[in-house]
Computed example of a mutant assay.
Amino acid sequence: MKFVAFERAKQGTGASRRLRNAGKVPGIVYGGEGEPQLIELDHNALWQAIKKEAFHSSVLEMDLGGKASQVLLRDLQIHPYKQQVLHIDFQRVSAKTKIHMKVPLHYSGEEESTAVKIDKCLVNHVLTELEVSCLPADLPESINIDLSKLEKGATLTLNDVALPKGVQAVLHGKDNPVLVSVVNPAAEEAEPEPAAAPAAAPAPEKK
């Protein structure tokens, strides 16, 4: 994805407020060989961009003053109740330096699996994104995982998935995390047995 940024000369709370009132978003780009640089972006264009998954998980091409550079979105501050981006941070990337990024997991085919189609099981997506390490050119926008072979009682782990070429998972204490688990359908509750009829009262004794 490509976007256009402009150099920003002033900083501070007052300057940022004036930018927001003018329909702009203050930001910063840092990292790489250059110094941190203050930038501003058009708010409406940015608001449309952040709705796209790729803007959050892929290498972006930033046009700043007619010069293109590759960056990653690193921080996004949004107003708690207004549809307004307050501030945005980008990190420059180098083609020869590996990056760490969280990539969304896209699951498909579970409706065709025997676990769902025949056994009526529930499929639980334990992880919806995966942190990976790779060169910028190898960073996938998403990782697609086919669940059409799932069976009742199955568990899909990271070792069961082939990652794209050049991509390695970044694991934090878990060697083989669970991605998907199959949950058996809840057993139907047995109908309650009818209550026993009350015992007949004994007949009164004759005097």
Rank of each mutant, 00 (worst) to 15 (best):
residue 69 S to V: 02
residue 69 S to D: 09
residue 69 S to C: 08
residue 71 V to I: 10
residue 72 L to W: 11
residue 72 L to H: 10
residue 72 L to S: 11
residue 72 L to R: 09
residue 73 L to R: 08
residue 74 R to G: 02
residue 74 R to C: 04
residue 75 D to Y: 04
residue 75 D to W: 06
residue 78 I to F: 07
residue 78 I to Y: 07
residue 79 H to W: 05
residue 82 K to A: 12
residue 83 Q to C: 00
residue 83 Q to G: 01
residue 84 Q to K: 12
residue 84 Q to W: 02
residue 85 V to Q: 01
residue 87 H to C: 06
residue 87 H to Q: 07
residue 89 D to W: 13
residue 90 F to K: 08
residue 90 F to H: 07
residue 92 R to M: 14
residue 93 V to T: 12
residue 94 S to I: 01
residue 95 A to I: 05
residue 96 K to T: 15
residue 96 K to A: 12
residue 97 T to D: 15
residue 97 T to R: 15
residue 97 T to I: 14
residue 98 K to A: 13
residue 98 K to F: 03
residue 103 V to Y: 00
residue 105 L to K: 07
residue 105 L to I: 10
residue 105 L to V: 06
residue 106 H to W: 09
residue 108 S to V: 06
residue 108 S to C: 00
residue 108 S to H: 11
residue 109 G to T: 09
residue 111 E to P: 00
residue 112 E to K: 08
residue 113 S to W: 01
residue 114 T to V: 13
residue 114 T to E: 14
residue 114 T to H: 05
residue 115 A to L: 06
residue 116 V to C: 07
residue 117 K to S: 08
residue 118 I to W: 05
residue 118 I to Y: 08
residue 118 I to K: 14
residue 118 I to M: 10
residue 119 D to P: 00
residue 121 C to S: 04
residue 122 L to E: 07
residue 122 L to F: 09
residue 122 L to N: 06
residue 123 V to I: 14
residue 123 V to G: 02
residue 124 N to M: 03
residue 125 H to R: 11
residue 126 V to S: 12
residue 127 L to I: 02
residue 128 T to V: 06
residue 128 T to E: 12
residue 128 T to F: 04
residue 129 E to R: 11
residue 131 E to W: 04
residue 131 E to G: 05
residue 131 E to Y: 05
residue 131 E to T: 14
residue 132 V to H: 05
residue 132 V to Y: 02
residue 133 S to L: 05
residue 134 C to M: 10
residue 137 A to F: 06
residue 137 A to Q: 13
residue 140 P to W: 00
residue 141 E to Y: 03
residue 142 S to K: 11
residue 142 S to Y: 06
residue 143 I to T: 01
residue 144 N to A: 09
residue 145 I to M: 04
residue 145 I to H: 01
residue 149 K to R: 05
residue 149 K to P: 00
residue 150 L to H: 03
residue 150 L to C: 06
residue 151 E to N: 10
residue 151 E to H: 07
residue 154 A to G: 09
residue 154 A to P: 03
residue 154 A to T: 06
residue 154 A to Q: 12
residue 155 T to M: 14
residue 156 L to W: 03
residue 156 L to V: 12
residue 156 L to C: 10
residue 158 L to N: 07
residue 158 L to Q: 07
residue 158 L to T: 06
residue 159 N to A: 13
residue 159 N to E: 10
residue 160 D to S: 09
residue 160 D to V: 09
residue 161 V to S: 05
residue 162 A to W: 01
residue 163 L to E: 08
residue 164 P to S: 09
residue 165 K to W: 02
residue 165 K to E: 15
residue 167 V to H: 09
residue 167 V to G: 07
residue 168 Q to K: 15
residue 168 Q to L: 13
residue 169 A to R: 11
residue 170 V to F: 00
residue 172 H to G: 01
residue 174 K to E: 15
residue 174 K to F: 08
residue 174 K to T: 13
residue 175 D to L: 10
residue 175 D to E: 15
residue 177 P to K: 08
residue 178 V to M: 10
residue 180 V to T: 01
residue 180 V to N: 00
residue 180 V to L: 01
residue 181 S to C: 01
residue 182 V to K: 09
residue 185 P to M: 07
residue 186 A to C: 03
residue 186 A to K: 14
residue 186 A to Y: 03
residue 187 A to V: 14
residue 188 E to Q: 13
residue 189 E to A: 14
residue 189 E to D: 12
residue 189 E to V: 13
residue 190 A to E: 15
residue 192 P to N: 03
residue 192 P to A: 05
residue 195 A to G: 04
residue 196 A to T: 11
residue 196 A to C: 02
